[in-house]
Design a protein around this nucleic acid. Structure first.
Lengths: 205, 205
DNA sequence: AGAGTTTTATGCAAGATCGCACAAAAAAAG
DNA sequence: CTTTTTTTGTGCGATCTTGCATAAAACTCT
């Protein structure tokens, strides 16, 4: 009966590594190589611990990927939610895309962890399929919620909200891919502005 | 000095396979598993020939992927161009998305070959990076060309054409991912309609 | 200090992967 | 019929990958 997190230590040799820290390192590795692009050996090396330790702490490669992906998705949701919390819709949307573009390009042309690495194996690996599906729905829901809040604020019934939210989600997906293809942050921001301006004008103007 | 295609046969044992036919089979295999999701052994098995023959005819796994991807991109470009050739903008765009959705879902929830398999290894494999970048630019260009044609037809200077083309391209990218996540053709068509209607209204209405 | 517990670190064994070599087979050319 | 050319099919060897076993190390609790 293994506990998912660190079990309440009642003795035993102490770990040489911090679980969260190692998870971040493995996340970065999987982010750049994809799930099948790296072996358990490679992950262990890049995380600075040996394979049996890693296997004991995290399990199989799929399990590691799953945890890394969920951690990423939660972080992303958090960052976007905070940005979208801004009162002015236009500012909120631009901020949300700015934040995302930052994450997609800060450490290199990485793009989105989920959007760029999960699809490749979504047909053969339930872990990838599930996280992909969940992430897509989550992003749509995030934008839709923000647009609904805006529509409630101004009493206008302009615009098909789910469609507009879908356009914002699509733009984010595409930016994730374009970042991976090497587009510069500036170019990505300008690209995002096109859709954002459009959506805001349609809803408010 | 190897010829890329079949060299003008002036003797020698005849091949037991058709090169184009085998390429299609390998393309389908790579489409579902991704580049790193299958071994040369597996590709050879699924194509019905043995590894040395395959290596002699096509080269490394990267070379195979490159040819499969280029073939797919050319096919896609062709299909979309034909659809966009329709005079009525609204009909043309809907047709283009219908065709794409067909390709993305006809044989299962495959999504787009390039968009779903290239990003994962784009950072570590120049072949993947290049085909991804090219495909993104090609799709943008395709939509932009069609919108410019429309703007020339009606003498209106409404709308930021590159931005609108980008929104259409983003929608196509997103649909490629959503198809891979298991969305039904009907749901995808309805999703596409949201952006298409929007773009058409902005440009023409 | 001793017992119990947990992690570390090394290493082995089985299987996958891939490049390459080599002989046999099948066709054209002389 | 022989030579030349090209493909086929088998198989070997080196490396990678992964699960598992095992002994030593480090810490807690009694």
């Amino acid at each position: 009966m293994q506990d998912r997190t660190k079990k309440a230590n009642k003795g035993g040799r102490p770990r040489k590594f911090d679980e969260d820290e190692v998870l971040i390192q493995m996340q970065r590795q999987l982010w750049t190589t994809g799930l099948s692009g790296i072996s358990l050996d490679g992950i262990a090396r890049s995380a600075g611990l040996n394979r049996p330790s890693l296997a004991a702490a995290f399990g199989s490669k799929d399990a590691i990927y799953g945890r890394a992906a969920r951690q990423y998705a939660a972080m992303m949701d958090d960052c976007l939610s905070r940005a979208l919390d801004i009162d002015n819709l236009h500012v909120a949307l631009r901020k949300a895309f700015d934040v995302a573009i930052g994450i997609y390009t800060d450490a290199g042309p990485d793009g989105c962890f989920v959007i760029c690495t999960a699809p490749a194996e979504a047909l053969t690996n339930p872990v990838c399929r599930d996280i992909l599906d969940l992430s897509i729905e989550a992003i749509d829901a995030l934008f839709l919620k923000r647009l609904e809040r805006e529509q409630a604020r101004v009493q206008s019934s302009h615009g098909d909200l789910p469609a507009l939210a879908g356009m914002l989600g699509s733009t984010l997906h595409s930016i994730a891919l374009r970042a991976r293809a090497g587009w510069s942050p500036d170019r990505l921001r300008s690209f995002a502005a096109g859709t954002v301006d459009h959506v805001v004008k349609d809803l408010v103007g």
